[in-house]
Write a protein that binds this DNA or RNA. Structure first.
Length: 564
DNA sequence: AATCTGTTGTCCCA
DNA sequence: TGGGACAACAGATT
């Protein structure tokens, strides 16, 4: 896979790199570099790695197994750690194996260490006496806090720090600054500020053919890339295993396959994709590779613009494939510039809404037993594959929050964050804010129907039959609403509703009325108090909403008034 | 103050 | 399969 990739000028990261406080070279005695991998698990288009290799007698390529993400949690609702499901952990390990193998081909290897990353890296810096520390700049709050600690230590020790922006197309901080210190809150204003990526016009062919050797590792405990078993996890069955394999090699292969069909690339329109397509997904499924940095977003960007150059016409942002990359940057920028972006409270761009705290409804949604086959099938795909089509994500997110169950978006966000192999802090939170009508998008009367939305793409219900095999023999007339099937039909399909498959947890028709009413009241409150809604205000609104409840459509009735 | 825009709704009708 | 009604929001732009 050591192919020559057509890459752009490195000038850009000189412009955007975050420089350390004037390092004092005399203080660092060594002449080696430490390359700290976190995301950016690739060889191609990796400015931090390139810099680590430059003028170094040795390079220490390090990955730290962080218990915060990787420690097994037997109490979690699915196999994995408290924060990551096993499919994503496996995807990461596969990416590390691939990275290690590529590094070995360059005469190096990956050094895997375990422990708190801050402490581990600082210990390595001390013991190995490196002159330079290189790692990709990261806007996620977890890394922001971690990186400050490490940078402070390195600067004080006279170690040069090189931390380029290479995960996204743009520098979020740069865009926020251009906008007067606040992130743009609409896609169009983001595009205006972002402008054309300046580096796109100056391509450069880079071939990384070798790396300086790994230096003496001293007493640091180095291991190979662990297996899931070595990390303390039980192997999961084939049935629960995601079909997507991690790693840079896989990412580049998938990229090549995706852009082979020029017409498909040129005519791509995200909203027109079929969420029920699972044998051949309607999108590229490159998101997990972008998340871990197995694929460089700007290499992807340049491959797409190359295709555009050779076709008569092509689609444009927001719906085009390039548009998707720009959405990614949009959410990174808003997430970076918004305090408490991942919470409702204290988040100035988030509407304060009196969501339910209903663990039963949340569990029904999470465990794929809402009684709506379209919703439940998507939730099964989430658990098994760690990936669903974008519109499928919309359907279940809308259903959990503003559409039907009125459960807090943060609860759904947590489930997605854990189970998606492509879960990305900024993008995941941004989309939950969007879908719950808490920010960016406010037309709460537009609700995805859990019955008709899927039906228009997949009238026969093949997607449901695949992910919910209990319904595989249900006639297509009833498969989206099996509770309406006559008892004889249910018996014949060997699926008795209420026994083999649950009855709906809510009645959709009355649930949407309730949700719209609550959102109208909540919006009015937010407008009246102009961004200063307190906990007390929300409590009062909750009481008011209960008092006003129409006995024909209150929550308990909504739950009980089920057909059949 | 009025108007336009917003990645991806549903239902009904022709 | 495509258009309009529905009911209607916030934020950006004028």
């Amino acid at each position: 896979m050591r192919v020559s990739l057509c890459l752009s000028s490195p000038n850009r990261f000189l412009q955007f790199c975050h420089r350390p406080n004037s390092p004092n070279p005399s203080m660092a005695s060594g002449s080696g570099s430490l390359m700290w991998f976190r995301k950016g698990l690739r060889i191609h288009d990796n400015p931090a790695l390139q810099q680590a290799a430059k003028e170094s007698t040795c390079v220490y390529p390090v990955f730290v197994i962080d218990p915060y993400f990787m420690e097994p949690d037997p109490n979690a609702f699915s196999p994995g750690s408290s924060r990551a499901g096993l499919n994503r952990i496996r995807f990461l390990l596969e990416s590390l194996v691939d990275l290690d193998s590529s590094l070995r081909q360059l005469g190096s290897r990956l050094l895997v260490l375990k422990g708190d990353p801050g402490e581990v890296i600082i210990r390595c810096l001390k013991e190995w006496e490196v002159k330079r520390l290189c790692f990709e700049y990261d806007t996620d709050p977890y890394y922001q806090a971690l990186d400050i600690k490490v940078k402070n230590y390195a600067s004080a020790a006279g170690i040069e720090v090189f931390s380029p922006v290479s995960h996204t197309l743009f520098d979020s901080a740069d865009i926020i600054q251009k906008n007067g210190g606040r992130p743009p809150l609409s896609y169009q204003s983001f595009l205006k500020l972002a402008g054309q990526p300046s580096w796109a016009s100056s391509p450069l062919s880079t071939t990384l053919s070798w790396l300086p050797p790994v230096g003496d590792v001293g007493t640091c405990e180095i291991s190979n890339v662990p297996t899931v078993k070595e990390l303390g996890y039980e192997e999961i069955g084939q049935d629960e295993l995601t079909p997507f394999k991690g790693g840079e090699s896989e990412a580049l292969k998938r990229l090549r396959e995706s852009i082979r069909d020029k017409e498909w690339v040129a005519n791509f329109e995200k909203p027109k994709g079929d969420p029920s397509a699972f044998l051949k997904p309607a999108t590229t499924v490159l998101s997990p590779y972008l998340k871990f940095g197995c694929l460089s977003s700007r290499y992807f960007y340049q491959c797409l613009t190359d295709v555009y150059k050779n076709v008569k016409r092509h689609t444009s942002p927001p719906v085009s494939l390039v548009g998707q990359l720009l959405w990614r940057d949009f959410f990174y920028t808003v997430g970076f510039g918004t305090p408490n972006f991942d919470h409702m409270k204290g988040n100035r761009i988030c509407k304060q809404i009196p969501w339910n705290d209903d663990d039963e409804l949340l569990a029904a949604w999470r465990e794929a037993r809402t009684g709506y086959p379209w919703i439940d099938a998507i939730m099964v795909q989430l658990r098994k594959w760690g990936w669903m089509h974008h519109l499928a994500r919309h359907c279940v997110a809308c259903f959990l929050t503003r559409g039907d169950l009125f459960v807090h978006w943060e609860k759904g966000r947590d489930v997605f964050e854990r189970l998606l192999i492509d879960s990305d802090w900024a993008i995941n939170n941004g989309n939950w804010l969007w879908l719950s009508c808490s920010s960016f998008f406010y037309q709460y009367n537009r609700i995805y129907s859990p019955i008709t939305f899927g039906k228009k793409y997949d009238p026969n219900g093949n997607y449901i039959r695949h992910f919910l095999p209990i319904l595989k023999d249900m006639p297509k007339e009833y498969i989206y609403e099996p509770w309406t099937a006559p008892p004889s039909i249910q018996a014949k399909a060997k699926c008795i509703i209420g026994k083999d498959y649950p009855k709906p947890v809510v009645c959709h028709d009355s649930a949407i009325k309730e949700c719209k009413r609550k959102l109208a009241e909540a919006y009015a409150l937010n407008k009246r108090l102009d961004g200063s809604v307190t906990e007390e205000d929300l409590k009062k609104l909750r009481r008011k909403l209960e008092e006003d409840e129409n006995p024909e459509s209150n929550t308990s009735r909504t739950r009980q008034k089920l057909i059949g």
